[in-house]
């Protein structure tokens, strides 16, 4: 295992530009350390990034809130900026891991680690978040919804990393919000199902619906087909059998030690129903 602690961003870029070896960025370490321990990471290069100021902090930039990738979950929970602009996002993160983990875990690490259970992702998806992905010579802004390509895989190249997460300041404005995380206990809970939703209604019809689910696919995803079906319908016009059918196309839940696929599927159906009814 090779270890690098770059002095600054330049040093960081130099390092990741120079070699194409499998590399990991050590931010909070709450995923990496476990993966090293159980042997899923070995003989890789570890690059420490938590000390780099350019990657850290919460700012308002014009119409966006920009959260540095190495910002801790606890910093988001305590942030005034977030409280004022994205209270739903903030509130929903309270169930993230545990208070002890929140002080280490970072938002960027949660996204990049790419677990199907990553809690911030469904939330960010319904908030239409974008990622700022940087390399030595390029900055690209991509929609979070286009970031993942499969189980623990994403579009980042070996010389790139996430610099920040960009959320429209008004992402929650005017919406009814919904977030439910289902697990086997109330803290230190790995989600079996998570569902985030935003909706607004005008003249009894859903004018906008945004839905994202975690733990139900290889990575957390927006449920676009369902959104499309529901938009511009009133509650009475919705055929829930159709919703179930569409959900079947949108999610691929599995049975494992933690839960069963049928359970996951039906709970998701129930949660969507409750979200629409509330």
């Amino acid at each position: 295992m090779k270890f690098i602690r770059p002095n600054d961003m330049e040093g960081l870029f130099q390092n990741i530009e120079e070699n194409n070896d499998r590399k990991y960025f050590l931010a909070g370490g709450t995923d990496i350390n476990i993966q090293i321990k159980n042997g899923t990471i070995k003989d890789a290069e570890i690059i420490y990034i938590k000390h780099l100021k350019e990657l850290n902090g919460i700012q308002i930039e014009k119409d966006d809130i920009v959260i540095g990738a190495t910002t801790n979950i606890s910093d988001i929970l305590n942030s005034k900026i977030i409280k004022e602009n994205l209270p739903f996002f903030q509130r929903s993160l309270e169930s993230f891991a545990s208070p002890l983990l929140q002080t280490s875990a970072t938002i960027g690490g949660n996204i990049a680690n790419g677990s199907p259970t990553a809690d911030v992702v469904p939330l960010l998806l319904v908030l239409d978040a974008k990622l700022e992905i940087v390399s030595k010579s390029q900055i690209r802004i991509i929609e979070l919804t286009n970031f993942f390509t499969g189980y623990k895989t994403n579009i980042m190249k070996a010389n790139e990393l996430i610099r920040s997460i960009i959320i429209p300041k008004k992402a929650e404005n005017g919406f009814d919000t919904f977030f439910e995380k289902v697990g086997s206990r109330k803290s230190l809970m790995i989600s079996k199902i998570s569902l985030a939703g935003l909706k607004n209604i005008s003249h009894n019809k859903f004018t906008t619906i945004k839905l994202a689910a975690g733990s139900l696919n290889e990575y957390p995803r927006r449920l676009y087909k369902i959104e499309e079906y529901l938009t511009d319908k009133s509650l009475l016009e919705i055929d829930f059998l159709k919703v179930e059918e569409l959900l079947n196309e949108e999610i691929t839940p599995i049975t494992d030690l933690r839960s069963d696929k049928e359970y996951r599927y039906h709970v998701c159906v129930n949660l969507i129903r409750t979200f629409l009814n509330e």
Partner: peptide, 10 residues
């Protein structure tokens, strides 16, 4: 913090 997941460098 849980010190079992915090690395020396940090």
């Amino acid at each position: 913090v849980t010190s079992c997941l915090v690395n020396a460098v940090h």
